[in-house]
Computed example of a mutant assay.
Amino acid sequence: MARILLVPGFWLGAWAWDDVAGRLRALGDEVAAVTPRGVDPGDADRLSVTLEEQARGIVEAVPEGETRVLVLHSGAGVTGYLATDIAPERFERVIYVDTAPGWEGFAVNPELDPELREWELPDWAEFEAQEPGLLDGLDEAALARFRAGAVSEPATIAAVPLKLSDRTDRLAIPSTVICSSFTAAVAQQLRDAPEVSLFDELARIDADYIDLPTGHWPMFSRPVELAESLHEIANRPLAD
């Protein structure tokens, strides 16, 4: 069975994967989830964390000499992809959950006020105004759990452009995009469009695409279905 490393998106810690991780373990997989550096409220220096430090934290979650299937949600598509740039040999497969790998110079929120050191979890109405459907599938209990566990995101992670190396090893790692708040068809259309979008780096990767219709947080809205998709993908035979 697969050995899987789960990395949550912005404002979230390892706890966000609890329901998914439990189902994956029931299916026989070995699972670990990480709280990204900078999102641990007990870390006094968390707001000074860099993209590289967060990425190295992901790398260090994989024991030296071993490999993992890396699962990245939302904003983790940036630092998780950087982790595959730093140490591609530690990741046998990457699964992007409602996200895509960051490209050179990409920042999640480049318009964040430069005076701010941290980005608080926005009001739900702000999410809906930004993109209707992001909260699909989340009932009041899920929203309350999300907000209770959320930790502000360091501006150093949200607003600083990604810097990648010239090495190309990371591009050969088998990749899958699980599409929830956007469809597989839209992701591929934007990947191939001349306009700059979140999906540009996918043009350099041989990825496959799977639809799991729901909002942006399928680990809360459809944990069983997400876990079963992750299990199936993670246990696919690797090409020789």
Rank of each mutant, 00 (worst) to 15 (best):
L116P: 01
G13V: 04
W15L: 10
E140K: 07
A203M: 01
L116H: 13
A2C: 02
P174T: 04
L51Q: 15
D192Y: 02
L162N: 02
L238I: 02
E52G: 07
I86R: 00
Q130F: 13
T214M: 07
L226Q: 10
A148S: 10
F127D: 03
V186M: 14
F91R: 00
F91Q: 04
I205V: 15
I58V: 15
I178L: 11
R37H: 07
L27R: 15
V71Y: 03
P237G: 06
F127T: 08
R23H: 10
R90Y: 05
R93W: 12
D166T: 00
D113Y: 10
L202M: 11
R222A: 13
D206Q: 09
F10Q: 06
I95Y: 04
P63D: 11
R46Q: 02
A193F: 01
P63V: 09
A76W: 01
I95F: 06
T183R: 13
P218E: 14
I86G: 00
T168E: 14
R3Y: 02
E60M: 10
A141W: 01
Q130S: 13
L238N: 08
I210F: 01
L121Q: 03
A125C: 08
L138A: 06
I233H: 06
T214V: 07
G28W: 03
D45T: 02
V39T: 10
E153S: 09
A107P: 13
A159N: 06
A32P: 06
Y96I: 15
L82A: 03
V20N: 03
E195A: 11
R145D: 10
G105I: 00
D208K: 05
G137Q: 08
N109M: 12
V69R: 03
T50N: 12
D136L: 10
A239Q: 11
L134R: 11
L72K: 01
S48T: 09
A14G: 02
I173S: 09
L24R: 09
L51A: 06
G215P: 09
D123R: 12
M219E: 07
A100C: 08
V49D: 01
E111V: 08
L121Y: 05
L51I: 12
V71P: 02
A142L: 15
E201L: 05
A14D: 09
V62R: 01
N109I: 14
R204V: 00
R90I: 00
E89G: 10
S165E: 05
T67I: 01
P154D: 05
E111S: 13
S221I: 09
E153N: 04
D19Q: 15
E140P: 03
E30G: 11
F199D: 00
L12E: 06
A184K: 11
D85A: 13
W17F: 11
E120R: 11
A239E: 13
T168D: 08
H73I: 11
P41E: 08
A61I: 07
A100P: 00
L198Q: 15
L198Y: 10
E153T: 05
G133H: 04
